[in-house]
């Protein structure tokens, strides 16, 4: 049985696929500009097109030769299980950066650290608490006091 397309794309072809979309969008957006403004990116795009064609042949050949057996039904479930911790971490990080401007840096940072410690397997409450307090203090001293950096205050602090 051949390797599934989804597995193959995730392992080998996701970046070039995204790159192709980016290059096409760039070309469409910039093609009507004056020749000199577009001359340099056009050269880079031409090079990338050649490389993408090469990639298509190279990865296609690799896929057609792959003989890895794959349990299609459990593939996604296994992937989610394997990447559960890092994915949860990235989602938590995204939520944190989406909200720290509106809710306030110190409140969101406290909550973010709490969730992150738990997600990443830290079970000792004392360590969690000390780290959160220590890091919030460090941020305050380093960024607000020393570097005079205006951190977002949002609704709270």
């Amino acid at each position: 049985m051949r390797n599934s397309i989804l597995n193959f794309v995730l392992k080998n072809a996701l970046f070039p696929s995204l790159a192709v979309i980016f290059v096409i969008s760039f070309y469409i957006s910039a093609r009507d500009l004056q020749a000199i403004s577009f001359s340099y990116p056009k050269g880079v795009i031409a090079l990338l097109v050649v490389l993408f064609v090469w990639t298509l042949f190279s990865e296609g050949k690799k896929w057609s030769q792959s003989k890895e057996e794959l349990d299609e039904a459990n593939f996604l479930a296994n992937k989610v299980k394997e990447f559960k911790k890092p994915l949860l971490m990235m989602v938590t990080f995204l939520v944190y950066i989406l909200f720290f401007d509106d809710i306030g840096f110190f409140v969101t940072t406290g909550l973010f650290l709490l969730f992150m410690f738990i997600i990443l397997g830290q079970r000792r409450p004392m360590i969690i608490l000390l780290n959160i307090i220590g890091l919030l203090l460090l941020c305050y001293v380093l960024f607000t006091v020393t570097l005079s950096l205006p951190l977002p205050s949002g609704l709270f602090i």
Partner: peptide, 15 residues
Amino acid sequence: STSILVPIVLLLCAV
């Protein structure tokens, strides 16, 4: 432990 290191670095990255 990575459970300590990773949140600290992510926080520094965001700020």
